[in-house]
Structure formats: structure tokens, C-alpha cells
Design a protein around this nucleic acid. Sequence first.
DNA 1: CTGAAAGCGCTTACAG
DNA 2: CTGAAAGCGCTTACAG
Lengths: 337, 337
Amino acid sequence: MTTIKDIAQKSKVSVATVSYVLNNTRWVHEEKRKRVLEAISELNYVPNAVARGLRVQKSKAISFVVSDITNPFYPDLAKACEDLAQTKGFTINILNTDDKPDRTQLALNQVREGKVDGIIVTSALEQDREHFQKFMEQGYVIVLANRFIKGLQVDSVVADNFSGAVMATNHLYQLGHRKIAFMPGIIGSSITESRLNGYLKAMEDAGLTIYPEWLTSGEARYSGSYNTTKFLLGLPEEKRPTAILSLTDIGALGVLDAATDLGISVPDDLAVIGFDDLFISGTRSIQLTTVSIPRYEMGNLATSLLLERLEKSGKPEFQEIVLPVELIVRKTCGKQK
Amino acid sequence: MTTIKDIAQKSKVSVATVSYVLNNTRWVHEEKRKRVLEAISELNYVPNAVARGLRVQKSKAISFVVSDITNPFYPDLAKACEDLAQTKGFTINILNTDDKPDRTQLALNQVREGKVDGIIVTSALEQDREHFQKFMEQGYVIVLANRFIKGLQVDSVVADNFSGAVMATNHLYQLGHRKIAFMPGIIGSSITESRLNGYLKAMEDAGLTIYPEWLTSGEARYSGSYNTTKFLLGLPEEKRPTAILSLTDIGALGVLDAATDLGISVPDDLAVIGFDDLFISGTRSIQLTTVSIPRYEMGNLATSLLLERLEKSGKPEFQEIVLPVELIVRKTCGKQK
DNA sequence: CTGAAAGCGCTTACAG
DNA sequence: CTGAAAGCGCTTACAG
């Protein structure tokens, strides 16, 4: 491995000078400068980032934590993060938590260990609150994206999930549906809560009744949604929903498949709406009506918030950004009944 | 920030001793040991990984490079990598190349800079050959997954793409198809090449003719495949394929949608087969016949190859693993004609 | 304009 | 069983 010392020797200057030309951080006599540059290219030298990091106490890396990168929702976020980070010379670490709090701790430790300078978490849960609180008190920087934690003072960028759920529910109502079920996701997630609240509000405003059986899911993935749908569609006539609002598009796929397997046709006998607007949802074979979440923008903003806070170590106001969402009407709700 | 020195002072031992209890690397008198442990938990100390990394010349991190994490094929690979890496205390960096060679260079530099110990690249291209060659000559470690580079001496784990294409083509042939088109992907990728060769071989063995127009794609994504399909289906009768073999499932979705938009029904008027067997492909609305690629296993093996090579610095034989694939027959090819 | 030297926070021979 | 000290490869006050 060739180091700065080798370059210094070969070009007959001090290591200091090499460092200065490397970083362009002070004027160096043209001739020396040239010698240094030559030595660098001859010896194929690339500076050691770890040594530099130790010295300047910065790693130029950030962690991006997701609950499951395998869920097509997250790669878009991660991509946005990497795209921006890369232009600033930052490297990005991915960490899957599977929504397990101890995995999130692992991510926090990456910054305590100095491996990364800051962290973006898209998988915040209510039970993380104290850990995050303490983490920030220790002076570390974190920004929340996608899911926030109520009342926690921290930078965050989320979608307007409440309004999204209201819009979706109203859409169903306007189409003539009166028995509208909502399938919540994991508890402790602000997404489940905001969307549930939006649904509840819209149902109440419409004077519709909600059967407790409708709110049992707790699992927004494909198979959980598939099973819940079979349960819902097996309910006695009066309680059997004519419309299902799924927490995610992936979940909605489970709803669709369960309906198919039950011989129930969508949208004629059942309306379904998802959340996210994944690429796949727009496909001719799916045509899912859904609430679109601006994922790329969310990842981008979260990253720029983090990078900003990393630059200026002051303690400016925390920013809580809420991104607007949009109802994308396609084919899974059908026409006016 | 609290350092090993603080712990040493507080517990009245040397920093060496602290280090030894931290790493459990030599026997320490029980009493001192206890004092150290107490100090650690009282001061909430966590060792600095960067300093350690500099000292031992290891970062305990690896890079995982993909062409585009947004393509649902890759997250499964990445997940496998992280799952395994995490159990060994390794952290993983994700880097998207968009199939641009200079981005790949960035990844190589991450290891030259000491940020990561090794690298798994799933997006190798023929034009990377020399860079990888030199990289390895410099003593750095790399393993190729998914795509390999012919003749390059390096650890690799890929799927048996050739056989997959043969199986797919034969399936179509047995169903009665005689005009079977193949839509290649990016050139320089071993995947395009192996699958193309498999297709060519099967077509030849069956004595079928191939029109050059059939091989024009060069784009395995959705929109490229969509457009190519429109082109193929617009060909004069004799050259118009009755079956299309897409390089990927995502591409096959484009084929499906183009057919739909053209009013051509699948599988009655057009058979389509993909590659990958993404989750979505098995869904009731898609039911895509496809060649399944064992992604998770591929990521897992690649990671364990890398980790192995990182441990034993000797130069054992390079391993070239080829994973078997499977034809998953679903609904997009229909019955015997 | 330039260099010698301290120091970032660790680990690990070396000596006792 | 334990400690003082060198050193990993850089950057950056400090002094000239």
C-alpha cells in the first residue's frame, strides 16, 4: 500500500505539502506541486479515507435504514439518498431492520462508532423514541423519513398520510360504498396511525359505521393482506365490506389475489385502493387505484436535511416537512354504483 | 466524545488493559476488568471503529454494487448480502452504477481508500475487465455475482443463464411456436450473452430461422421492452413473432402491456416468457411464465466467498459457481397450439 | 511559501 | 498479569 509518505519521499517534499496539494488547501510552489502530482500518478496513490476520517473526525458516510429493502417501496427512497449523497462525496450504508428495535440500535451504533456521520431512518417506530432522544442529546444527527415519531424534536420528512386516507375513503364513499374496511399495518408506525386516523375521520364525517373486525390486520405485506382479505370477505353479509383500503400497494396485491381466489371480482364486487403507487401498480394487468407517495422526493429531501445539518453544526430549528399526496384513480374501484 | 483514554483514567488502568478487556484478547485481573466494564457503561462508551480500522487495516465493511437498486431484482441480492454480513459484524455499502463504468470505478476506489475491505459487484460489464484485473493485481478483493466476465480469474457466482434460455426456448417450441423472438439487454453483460447464446442454440437445434430484426432490443427495462414489442408486433406477418423471450421479468411486463395496448391477447395471440421470477410475476394478475433465478442464494454465496477470501489472505483457487435455474410455467404461454 | 511535529483513537509487540 | 510506547495514515496549527 502506498501512503502519503511514499509520495513525499519520491517527490522530495514534506508530507504536509503532499497533503496540501491533495486537498488544494494552500498554495504550493508550482514545481513541487508538479512533482507531487507526478509521484501520485506514478505510484497510483489514493489517500486513505480512514486515516483522514480519524484525523478530521468525519467519515463522509451516512446510514440509510429501512425496514426491508426487499419491499419495492424503499429502493426508490434509497436511490434518491444515494444520488444526492454521491454528488457530495458521501458513501451510503444500507441497514435492514425488519422492524426490530435492536437492529435499529445497530444503526445508531454505526454513528457512535464513527463509521458514519449521520443517519436517515425510514423505519422509525414509537418504541424507538427514547433511543432516538438520547442519541440526539449525545449530539449525533438523525433525520426521520417516511415515518415520524409524534412530538419528537427531530428533522423529518413524511407524506401527508392523513389526507391521503381521507381522499381514498371519500372516493369510495362517492362511488357509493358504505361498507369500507381499512387494513392497518404494524403498530407503532406513524404511517399506520395517520392513515387510520384519516380513514376514521372520513368514515365519521360520512356517518358510516365501522365494525371492529375491519381493523384487525396489523400486517401490510402481501400474505398478511391476503389472509385478512379472506377473513373480511368471509364475514356475514352485513359486515362484509364492499371496499377495502389497504395500507400499501403490496398489501393491495394480496387483497386482489384473495378476491380472485374467492371468485370475487374487482371492481364489480369489491373495490380496492392501495397506498404508494409503486411502478407495478400502473401496469395494465394491475391498474390499481392508489394514493401516490412521493418517495424519491422524500428521500432526496431527507438526505439534504441531513447533509445540511452535518455541515453547519449549529442548532437551527428542526424541520418537519409534510409532502402532499395524490389519489391516482385507475381501475380497481370501478364506476359509480 | 468519550474515548478509551477516559475509560482508562476512570478505571485506573492503562489504555492497553481497556483495549484487552474490550476485545477479550488477553486475561485481565477480575477486579480491574470489573472497573473497566463499569466505567464503560457509566460513560456510555463505544469504541471508535475508524481508529480501530486504521490500526488494524480493516474496515469491517463491504461494498455491494448494483446497476440499479430500484430494479426489484437486486434488493433480494442485497438483502442476502446484508443478512450474512451482519452476522459477521460487517457493514454494507450500496452503490448504484447505472451501468456506467466510471461509477464502478468509484466503488473500486472505496476499497482503495480503505473504506471497505472488499467488494461484490453484480453489475460487471465486459468493459470493466481491465480495471478489475488491475484491481486484483493490487491485492484487493472482489467477487462477481450475477454477471461474470469471461476468462477473468476471479471468484464468481452466477446463474446458469444459458440453460435457462434453452429451456425457455424449447418450451415455446414444444408448445408449437416457430417464430420466437429474443429481446437482448445491455451489451457487455454476460447475462445478455449467455441467454442469447442459449436461445440461439435452441433455435438452431430446432432448425428455426431467426430474423435479425428480432435481436434489436438492447434494453431490458420496462419501457425499452414495451417499445421493442410494439416494433416486433408491427413486423410483416411472416416475421412477426408469436412468442417473445424477454431478458427479464420487468421487461416481460413491458411486453405484456404493449400487447394489451395493441389489442393482442396473451397467451392466445402471443406467448411471453421472462427471466428472474420476481415476486410480482407469481401474482394472479400477472402469472408470468419465467425462468427463476436463485437471487438470495446467489447473494448469499457471493458474500460468503468474499468473507472467506477476506479472512484467509492466502491465494486459493478462484471459485466459479454456477447456480441451476428452473422454468416456472404459469399462464403467459398458454397450451399446445 | 514550506516543514517538523502533534495528535485523531485505537491495538499490539515488547519489556517487565 | 500489566503498562509504556510505537505506530496505523492522515491534517493542521505552529513556527519559520
